[in-house]
Design a binder for these strands. Structure first.
Length: 543
RNA sequence: UGUCCUAUGGUGUAAUGGUAGCACAUCAGAUUUUGGUUCUGCUUGUCUAGGUUCGAAUCCUGGUAGGACAACCA
């Protein structure tokens, strides 16, 4: 008990902040939010943020809102708002309230007029380049705009006319009046509104001025009484401005906290780059199984549980990090090992003939569905004189420590018999086309009554009259590899997915080969599986 | 030659002035009708130089290294 308490005491820095605020009465419950911009699909990095925001609220009995940060109509689309909601639900989270920053446009506008009246905002007529130049650099101060000292009346009039659509895009902006020499660039009269005659996915053509992130985010948090506005490190420098708007407006004070974003080695985690992969057709879509998007991982066969377990393991801190991809795979295998039923499929088949097995005979053998879950029971697999094994499971001459099939080396065909290879047939190029074996009828099921052992057990698939009716889409990190495989018939007859997978995606372990899931392109006549990941392979290291 | 953030094994993450722990990875062994799973064990770490203290990963100062900020993006 004490040990458990000690373990629970190991809090991340956000949990510490929350607990101390709860303890000193700063707030009695917490409110978080997940604030995606609907300009792309969610990726594994967003999963971390989702787990933090929803997870923290759940842990401390608070609530989490979903808020679309839709302040830039030219990049946003309803396709993205739909996919984002689907992905959050698939991960197993649900929001207390759903909002859009665009719901607050009117309020934001009124607050902008208030700031103008307080002499804290002005309309600037400078061009984009002039503004950029006037801002200075990180090491040199900026210069005041010649329009900086317009009267409150003139600013109000101009701003209203901006809203009324009297000016073209880029003609004017509304700026906060702070300090053009401030060492934090964010304070050098940041732009609050720009003119954009663009159709918004929710507000249509109602507006032609749109607020900038810095002018919208904190106030949106404030409106929703977000106690902990959690974002990534690059917004750290925005926090003083976030606080400034809230203070000048005198509104409910939300507070922002920053954590280090997720990086995974070998993994592209930039929305912009992922968009490019899709737009330029390097991949088949946002849900291409090679994409690190949530829908990509879903199609690839990852489970929500494994992604959440991963997010749990990586922790939350403020230092930059690069997580080993192997940690993601570990979390995946950990879950799938427990719940995925086993099947046998031969991805790179070579023919085997058991010469002393009666011609024309077939028999049914019993195979365990999941050794990790007895309740999953068993299934029957047809066995006959001719069958298929993996090409890499045979060598004419076995090197040291090679325990698979070789001439004269007895191996077990899983759940079937001990067999010994005797000879091979080859084609003109010298490729093996058929392996001739003998079997020991006394070893039915895979055990020898005389107690003798074999070093290796290999999987196999029965000979199939319908040539190549099963396909496998086999995923490599950098390429799409499609192979035609042989598999046991039970795979084709599966009609209802395991209760373990409420998302309706069938997932299996193909013994000794890896975890695979049915692809949405799969049909009863033409099964398509995606390889989710391989099994750990200690033989590959020995080789 | 600015402001801010960060620095603990290979990778992450704890230790909140008192024995540097956990996970992944790696390596070795045991078990195994999956070279899977499971189990056991090993190796590897406080950026640096001072200071405070009985005692510093932790507090202070300087250095070094990495990162963020100069969109009318979020």
């Amino acid at each position: 008990m004490e040990e458990n308490n000690a373990a629970e005491k190991q809090l991340n820095f956000l949990e510490e902040i929350i607990e101390s605020g709860l303890k000193d009465g700063t707030y009695t419950s917490i409110q978080t939010r997940f604030p995606p911009e609907p300009n792309g699909y969610l990726h594994i990095g967003h999963a971390k943020s989702i787990c933090i925001n929803f997870g923290l609220a759940k842990k401390y009995g608070g609530k989490t809102n979903l808020r679309f940060d839709d302040t830039n109509p030219v990049k946003e689309d309803t396709e993205y708002v739909d996919s984002i909601q689907e992905d959050i639900h698939w991960l197993g989270f649900d929001w207390a309230e759903k909002h859009y920053a665009s719901d607050y446009f009117e309020q934001l506008y009124e607050w902008a007029e208030l700031l103008i009246q307080k002499g804290l905002a002005y309309v600037d007529d400078q061009t984009l380049d002039q503004i950029r130049e006037g801002r200075g650099t990180v090491t040199t101060p900026g210069k005041n705009s010649p329009y900086r000292d317009r009267s409150v009346e003139e600013n109000l009039d101009l701003f209203r006319r901006m809203r009324a659509g009297e000016f073209p895009d880029g003609a004017k902006v509304l700026r906060a009046k702070i300090d053009m020499a401030h060492p934090n660039m964010m304070f050098r009269d940041p732009i609050m509104y720009r003119i954009l005659h663009a159709h918004h996915h929710r507000t249509g053509d109602k507006w032609c001025i749109y607020p900038m992130y810095d002018y919208a985010h904190g106030q949106s948090d404030s409106i929703e009484h977000i106690t902990h506005s959690i974002c990534t490190l690059e917004f750290d420098i925005h926090r003083p401005l976030y606080d400034w708007f809230i203070e000048q407006l005198g509104i409910w004070p939300s507070h922002q906290y920053e954590f280090a974003r997720l990086n995974i080695n070998y993994t592209v985690m930039s929305k912009r780059k992922l968009l490019q992969l899709v737009k330029e057709n390097y991949v088949t879509g946002w849900d291409d199984p090679r994409m690190p998007t949530i829908c990509g991982f879903r199609r690839r066969g990852y489970t929500p549980e494994s992604i959440k377990a991963f997010c749990d393991r990586i922790g939350v801190a403020k230092r930059d990090n690069i997580i080993d991809y192997s940690l993601l795979e570990f979390s995946l295998r950990e879950h799938l090992n427990k719940v995925a039923q086993r099947r046998m499929a031969v991805l790179d088949p070579v023919k085997v003939v058991i010469d002393n097995y009666p011609e024309g005979q077939t028999e049914m053998l019993t195979a365990v569905n999941n050794p990790e879950c007895e309740a999953d029971g068993t299934r029957q697999v047809p066995f006959g004189r001719e069958l298929w094994i993996e090409r890499e499971d045979f060598m004419e001459v076995a090197p040291k420590k090679y325990f698979r099939m070789a001439i004269g080396q007895e191996v077990r065909l899983r759940y079937a018999y001990f067999v010994t290879a005797q000879s091979v047939e080859k084609d003109a190029e010298g490729n093996i086309t058929c392996i001739h074996c003998t079997y020991d009828p006394a070893t039915r099921g895979g055990d020898a009554p005389d107690g003798r052992k074999v070093k290796g057990t290999i999987h196999w698939a029965p000979d199939d009259v319908e040539e190549g009716h099963t396909f496998l889409e086999n995923l490599n990190p950098n390429s799409l590899k499609v192979v035609t495989a042989k598999c046991e018939p039970s795979l084709g007859t599966q009609t209802s997915p395991s209760a373990q997978f409420p998302d309706g995606i069938e997932r299996y372990q193909f013994e000794r080969m890896g975890y695979f899931c049915s692809d949405r392109d799969s049909t009863p006549d033409h099964l398509v599986f995606n390889r989710t990941c391989t099994l750990k392979d200690s033989w590959a290291k020995i080789k």
